[in-house]
Amino acid sequence: GHYRIRINGREFEIRGISEEEIRHLEEALRNGADEKILKEIVDRLRG
């Protein structure tokens, strides 16, 4: 998958993330885990 997200007015492209991972992120966001989720995304993109 290849997705664009906007955070604090800046747009980011996220590549190589699966539909299942996105559902997991959405679930966590609904549970209020904003900073933790951003850290997970950044860590994943770093490799």
Score class of each variant (00 low, 15 high):
Ser18His: 05
Arg44Asp: 05
Phe12Asn: 00
Leu45Ala: 02
Leu38Glu: 01
Glu11Met: 09
Gly47Tyr: 05
Glu13His: 10
Asp34Glu: 09
Ile41Ser: 02
Lys39Ser: 09
Lys39Thr: 12
Leu25Phe: 07
Glu11Ile: 14
Arg30Val: 08
Arg23Ala: 14
Glu21Ala: 08
Ile5His: 00
Arg10Gly: 03
Arg23Glu: 11
Leu45Pro: 02
Phe12Met: 03
His2Lys: 06
Gly9Val: 01
Arg46Met: 15
Arg30Asn: 10
Phe12Lys: 00
Phe12Thr: 02
Glu35Val: 10
Arg10Ile: 14
Asn31Cys: 01
Lys36Glu: 12
Ala28Thr: 09
Asp34Gln: 04
Gly1Thr: 09
Gly32Met: 05
Gly16Asp: 14
Arg30Lys: 06
Glu27Leu: 11
Asn8Ile: 01
Ile17Ala: 15
Gly32Cys: 07
Ala33Asn: 07
Gly47Phe: 06
Gly47Asp: 12
Arg15Cys: 09
Lys39Ile: 15
Arg10Gln: 13
Ile22Leu: 07
Asp43Arg: 09
Glu21Tyr: 03
Glu19Ser: 12
Lys39Pro: 01
Arg4Tyr: 14
Leu25Ile: 13
Leu38Gln: 01
Ile37Leu: 10
Arg10His: 15
Glu19Pro: 13
Gly47Pro: 14
Ile37Pro: 01
His2Leu: 09
Glu19Trp: 08
Ile22Gln: 06
Glu35Phe: 10
Lys39Arg: 10
Tyr3Ile: 10
Tyr3Cys: 06
Asn8Ala: 06
Gly47Ile: 06
Ile37Met: 12
Arg6Val: 15
Glu20Ala: 11
Arg23Gly: 13
Glu40Trp: 14
Arg4Cys: 15
Ala33His: 08
Arg44Tyr: 13
Asp34Ser: 14
Arg44Asn: 13
Ile17Asn: 02
Arg46Pro: 09
Glu13Leu: 04
Arg23Trp: 06
Ile37Asp: 09
Ile17Arg: 02
Gly32Ser: 07
Lys36Met: 09
Gly47Met: 07
Ile37Lys: 11
Leu45His: 04
Ser18Tyr: 03
Tyr3Pro: 01
Tyr3Phe: 12
Leu25Gln: 00
Glu21Arg: 03
Glu35Asn: 06
Ile14Ser: 00
Arg15Gly: 05
Ile17Tyr: 03
Val42Ala: 03
Lys39Phe: 15
Glu21Asn: 11
Glu35Gly: 10
Arg30Cys: 05
Asn8Val: 01
His2Gln: 06
Leu25Gly: 00
Tyr3Met: 04
Asn8Gln: 06
Tyr3Lys: 02
Ile17Met: 05
Ile14Lys: 00
Asn31Ala: 11
Lys36Asn: 13
Ile14Val: 07
Asn31Pro: 04
Ile5Asn: 01
His2Asn: 13
Arg23Gln: 14
Arg15His: 15
Gly9Leu: 01
Glu35Ser: 09
Val42Gly: 03
Lys36Ser: 10
Tyr3Gly: 01
Glu20Lys: 08
Asp43Trp: 02
His2Pro: 09
Asp43Phe: 03
Ala28His: 13
Gly9Met: 01
Arg4Met: 13
Arg6Asp: 08
Ser18Met: 04
Arg10Met: 15
Ile41Trp: 07
Asp34Tyr: 14
Leu45Gly: 02
Val42Tyr: 07
Arg10Ala: 12
Arg44His: 10
Gly32Val: 06
Glu13Pro: 01
Arg15Ser: 11
Leu38Asp: 00
Glu20Cys: 14
Asp43Leu: 05
Arg44Thr: 10
Ile5Cys: 09
Arg46Trp: 14
Asp43Ile: 09
Ile5Tyr: 03
Leu29Phe: 08
Glu20Gln: 07
Phe12Cys: 02
Gly9Trp: 01
Glu19Phe: 11
Ile5Lys: 00
Arg4His: 14
Val42Arg: 03
Glu21Trp: 12
Tyr3Ser: 01
Lys36His: 13
Ser18Pro: 04
Leu38Ala: 03
Arg4Trp: 13
Arg4Val: 15
Glu40Cys: 03
Asn8Asp: 07
Lys36Tyr: 12
Ile7Tyr: 04
Gly32Gln: 07
Glu26Gly: 04
Glu27His: 12
Arg30Leu: 13
Gly32Tyr: 05
Arg4Leu: 15
Asn8Thr: 01
Glu21Gly: 08
Gly9Phe: 01
His2Asp: 12
Arg10Ser: 06
Ala28Lys: 07
Arg15Leu: 11
Glu35Leu: 08
Ile37Tyr: 12
Glu20Phe: 08
Arg10Phe: 14
Leu45Tyr: 10
Lys39Ala: 12
Gly16Ile: 10
Glu11Leu: 13
Ile14Met: 04
Arg44Pro: 02
Lys36Gly: 10
Leu25Trp: 06
Ala28Gly: 05
Gly1Phe: 13
Ile14Glu: 00
Leu25Val: 05
His24Pro: 05
His2Phe: 13
Glu13Tyr: 13
Glu27Ser: 10
Ile5Glu: 00
Ala33Leu: 12
Ile7Asn: 00
Gly1Gln: 09
Leu38Tyr: 04
Ser18Asn: 03
Gly32Phe: 08
Arg44Glu: 09
Glu20Gly: 10
Val42Gln: 03
Ala33Met: 10
Gly32Pro: 03
Ile41Pro: 00
Arg10Leu: 13
Glu35Pro: 10
Ile7Glu: 00
Gly32Lys: 05
Lys36Leu: 12
Phe12Ser: 00
Leu38Arg: 02
Leu25Cys: 01
Ile7Leu: 06
Asp34Ala: 10
Glu27Lys: 09
Val42Cys: 06
Asp34Gly: 10
Glu27Ile: 11
His2Trp: 12
Arg44Ala: 10
Val42Pro: 01
Leu45Thr: 02
Lys36Ala: 12
Glu11Ser: 06
Glu11Tyr: 13
His2Glu: 11
His24Asp: 13
Glu26Asp: 11
Ile17Val: 12
Arg46His: 14
Ile41Ala: 03
Glu11Asn: 04
Ile22Thr: 04
Val42Leu: 09
Glu13Gly: 02
Arg23Pro: 03
Glu40Asn: 06
Glu19Asn: 03
Lys39Leu: 15
Glu13Gln: 04
Ala28Asp: 03
Lys39Gly: 09
Ile14Cys: 07
Ile22Gly: 04
Asn8Arg: 02
Ile41Phe: 09
Gly1Glu: 10
Gly32Asp: 04
Ile41Thr: 03
Ile37Gln: 14
His2Ile: 15
Ala28Val: 12
Glu19Leu: 14
Leu29Met: 14
Ala33Arg: 05
Glu11Ala: 03
Tyr3Trp: 09
Ile14Phe: 15
Glu20His: 10
Phe12Pro: 00
Glu40Ala: 10
Leu45Val: 07
Leu45Trp: 09
Glu11Phe: 09
Asp43Tyr: 03
Leu38Thr: 02
Glu20Asn: 10
Ser18Glu: 03
Gly16Trp: 08
Ser18Thr: 14
Asp34Thr: 13
Ile14Tyr: 02
Ala33Gly: 06
Glu19Gln: 11
Ile14Thr: 01
Gly47Gln: 12
Gly1Ala: 05
His2Cys: 14
Asn31Gln: 10
Ala33Glu: 07
Ala28Asn: 05
Gly47Leu: 09
